[in-house]
Amino acid sequence: MAEQVTDATFESVVLNSDIPVLLDFSAPWCGPCRAIGPVIDELAGEYEGKVRIVKMNVDENPLTPTKYGIRAIPTLILFKGGEVLEQMTGAVAKPALQDLIVKKALA
């Protein structure tokens, strides 16, 4: 299962992480978010220790989505050393996410 991040824990979990972080901005009522939810959970297990894969509920955490100009969900942002490396919007299938992780996060 992918860990839930909040506005309060965002800095310590995402920005100050010593490994790359893939953050899924989502909400429980959003269909495409539900569609990729299980894939995000699977990836969190597969890349444990190499890439931290986490989710943020945009309903309960308004500050971080605003800071990153999120206007659509699901939006996935890949962070490395606190910087935004890549951003993707929509229900992306697993191979595309694995590709992103291998080519960008682990490169």
Binding site: W29, C30, G69, R71, A72, T75, T89
Partner: peptide, 12 residues
């Protein structure tokens, strides 16, 4: 897309 252009009203 994701910055104002959307294909899903309930999501965005």
């Amino acid at each position: 897309t994701g910055h104002g252009v959307s294909y899903c009203a309930i999501c965005d």
